[in-house]
Design a binder for these strands. Structure first.
Length: 703
RNA sequence: GGGCGGUUAGCUCAGUCGGUCAGAGCGCCUCGCUUACACCGAGGAAGUCACAGGUUCGAGUCCUGUACCGCCCACCA
């Protein structure tokens, strides 16, 4: 805040003069202050011990005006020589720093205010004035005396009450404190010994920084709501502290029965710090306490590492001799769309109940988790919430399709099983392979507290792989013309894979996954509910999936995408069926294609057949699509083909650009000699692939 | 003043061990009501990864510095 800095002249007593002597009219020391109303509480003036300007004044006495008190000039290295005048008045009863300075120099502490922040009798002529009036009057009086030397604008930090916005006045009060240094030491020890670790780890620095510089914790609060401080006072002022809930009964010192309990309550963070064990029955040796303490993961926002996490750790170590938790996972703060931290005080919070009414609890959860990189704040606005709602909707509709597509030959209570290998087609191998990869990656992400990553993996797996491709491929194998056994097997794969996704997604979207799962076939060892069903780790998917067939399908998917791309670029009517001649480099690609010919037809809107000779002839009326191991020629009109030339030219340019880059890399001897062989081999393979693709495209352009 | 973090596509943000990392969602553009889903589908455009140096065969990624932005702490009166 913008305030003022006043420079005020104090008059020195003559060297060696008795206290109370007339001060010198011209020998003075000038101090700077932002709070002149506290002058009446001054009990010293401090200068830096190495400050030549004041060296000879140390030990002399100065007269505090109006109260006419004589106080010493002391040397203390807390003083900043460059600030103000280099001399500072010391008011131990009304300033934190001055209190400590006063302690170091045995200066008296004179409280000059009342609880209502007006001046008390110690303020001499100003007694009875409010602190604001007092400031004005003192400044007037100083000016009149000629001792107000300078006034400067000054920017400074001023503590204000969060509720009333009043300036906080430091006071001397009798309060309860906890000596936390030894507790802090044990909390830090738990982290040093890795009994507790922070995720992300960088917050450990914040934690240590605070605990290493901790000072006694004032736990007295003048509030009604809270744990009452268990201290009782007798009329003589003796204190009796007890853990007996009804009180001590008698004063420990004078045996008086007349006891009153301290009116104060504990700091709310003191009570909150007891949470990890007090909720489990402590101090009793309860079953819950033995079972669940220490707990595994403490999750909270990084803004309360000091307030809460550190307190739980200090109190936990001190009272139970154990760390309260093994891992502290710190999430970021939620900000509003304008980037401001959401807080109850600011009133810019999203009401989760309203959001849930609108988009569902699961969508809200997904949005929050999907946006939560560890420790990083996130802005939460409508678009992320809508995306999450759409995902829930997508999952729901996919499940609806699967449930509705169940072949009639399967009994109602059919168990969830993976069909035998001979009933699996290439597409089934592909989705089983993709599903396995997603489960493996999502599981690793969860285990590493990468929750946003886990949701991203599952989102892609379910939407882009399962829905966009596998569902479409499975539709063909669910058709009426397909053999019943194959149809049933296809459906079992659909259900099996969906089941796996649901299990993985359940922690994030518990309601929708539970609901869908309840309608799917189960394994014999599954319970009634998903929430208690087994976590799907390494359950045979890897061995079930034939990776060669899966790779072949991946190539076919790539080819379909390129055919769609070519059609769109050439401006072919979407409804038009085109003849397509395909050729493949590898025999297993041909086999996979033959199994999926109907799928290719459906998805690319072509009538595909395999070319008699690989690499076939060129055609003036063919759209050509080239991928690493395959090629497709779509029969179109000559005009369409001409329109398409640009696409091929662009593709060639891109391919050649990458080719040049890889070739340059391979020509670099330091690269080939210093980089790991696996990297170099990878680049070589890529170079060969690019060369092949470029050659193919060029051949067709030349035709 | 101290500490920490951020700066990557129009927007909001991922990118963990330096090498298929130039990515996602939203938005935008072009198509499409194909019987799970228009809260959808197909295709597309779009980034000098804040700036300047350095290390390295190779740098959003590691180091140093700079500029902005944010957060926490704090007793220069």
């Amino acid at each position: 805040e913008q305030g003022k800095l006043w420079s005020i002249r104090y008059h020195l007593l003559p060297q060696g003069a008795a206290p109370g002597s007339e001060p010198s009219p011209d020998q003075t020391i000038t101090v700077a202050t932002t709070r002149p109303e506290t002058i009446q509480g001054d009990t010293g003036v401090a200068v830096h011990p190495d400050d030549d300007r004041y060296l000879e004044l140390v030990g002399r006495m100065v007269r505090i005006p109006f109260v006419e008190r004589d106080v010493p000039i002391v040397a203390d290295d807390f003083v900043e020589r460059d600030f103000g005048t280099g001399a500072v008045k010391v008011t131990p009863a009304h300033d934190h720093t001055d209190f400590e300075t006063g302690e170091r120099h045995s200066l008296p502490r004179i409280d000059i205010m009342t609880d209502a922040a007006s001046m008390n009798a110690n303020a001499g002529p100003y007694a009875g004035l409010s602190r604001e009036e007092c400031r004005l009057r003192i400044l007037e009086d100083l000016a009149a005396a000629g001792d107000l030397v300078e006034v400067k604008e000054h920017e400074m930090a001023i503590g204000r009450c969060q509720r009333s916005d009043d300036i906080v006045e430091p006071r001397l009060k009798t309060q309860w404190f906890i000596q936390v240094k030894p507790m802090a030491e044990r909390a830090m020890q738990a982290v040093r010994e890795r009994r507790t670790r922070f995720v992300p780890e960088r917050f450990e620095k914040v934690f240590f920084d605070w605990l290493e510089n901790i000072y006694d914790w004032n736990v007295s609060r003048q509030l009604w709501w809270g744990h009452r401080i268990p201290a009782w006072y007798c009329p003589k002022g003796h204190v009796t502290v007890t853990d007996v809930e009804t009180g001590p009964g008698r004063c420990v010192e004078c045996r008086s029965f007349e006891l009153t309990q301290d009116d104060d309550t504990f700091d709310t963070w003191f009570s909150s710090g007891l949470w990890p064990f007090s909720t489990l029955g402590w101090p009793d040796d309860s079953h819950d306490l033995r079972t669940y303490y220490p707990t595994q993961v403490m999750e909270t926002g990084h803004d309360i590492i000091f307030f809460w996490v550190a307190r739980m750790m200090m109190l936990g170590e001190w009272l139970t001799d154990e760390e309260p938790f093994r891992v502290v996972y710190l999430s970021g703060l939620i900000r509003d769309p304008y980037g401001k931290k959401m807080s109850k005080t600011k009133g810019n919070v999203i009401d989760p109940l309203l959001v849930m009414d609108e988009i569902g609890a699961d969508a809200l959860r997904f949005a929050l988790i999907n946006g939560a990189a560890p420790g990083a704040d996130q802005r939460l606005g409508p678009s992320r919430l809508e995306g999450a709602r759409n995902f829930a909707n997508k999952l729901w509709n996919a499940a609806r399709f699967v449930l509705g597509a169940k072949p009639s030959e399967l009994p109602a209570d059919v168990a969830l099983t993976l069909p035998p290998g001979d009933l699996l087609g290439p597409a089934e191998h592909w989705i089983l392979s993709r599903c396995h990869a997603a489960l493996r990656d999502a599981d690793a992400a969860y285990a590493g507290f990468q929750f946003a990553e886990a949701t991203r993996i599952l989102h892609t797996a379910i939407w882009s792989e399962y829905c966009d491709w596998y569902l479409e491929m499975a539709k063909v194998r669910l058709g009426p013309e397909v053999a019943a056994g194959v149809r049933a097997a296809t459906w079992q794969v659909l259900a099996w894979v969906l089941d796996r996704y649901l299990r993985m997604l359940h922690p994030v979207m518990p309601h929708i996954t539970e609901e869908i799962w309840g309608r799917l076939p189960h394994r014999p060892d599954d319970g009634d509910m998903l929430i208690t069903a087994a976590w799907p780790v390494d359950d045979g998917l890897a061995s079930a999936a034939d990776e060669r067939q899966a790779a072949a399908v991946a190539d076919i998917i790539e080819l379909v995408s390129q055919m769609r791309n070519a059609r769109a670029d050439a401006g072919i009517e979407p409804g038009t069926w085109l003849e397509a001649e395909l050729s493949f480099d590898q025999a297993d690609r041909v086999a996979a294609f033959e199994a999926l010919a109907d799928v290719v037809a459906r998805l690319a809107r072509v009538r595909p057949r395999v070319a008699d000779s690989p690499g076939g002839g060129t055609d003036a009326t063919a759209l050509v699509v080239v991928s690493a191991g395959a090629e497709a020629r779509l029969t179109v009109t000559a005009e369409d083909r001409d329109r398409d030339r640009g696409r091929l030219e662009k593709e060639l340019a891109e391919t050649e650009k990458m080719l040049v880059a890889t070739q340059a890399q391979l020509a670099n001897h330091s690269f080939t000699s210093k980089a790991p062989a696996s990297i170099v081999d990878g680049v070589r393979a890529r170079e060969a692939e690019l060369r092949a693709v470029a050659a193919r495209i060029r051949a067709h352009l030349d035709a």
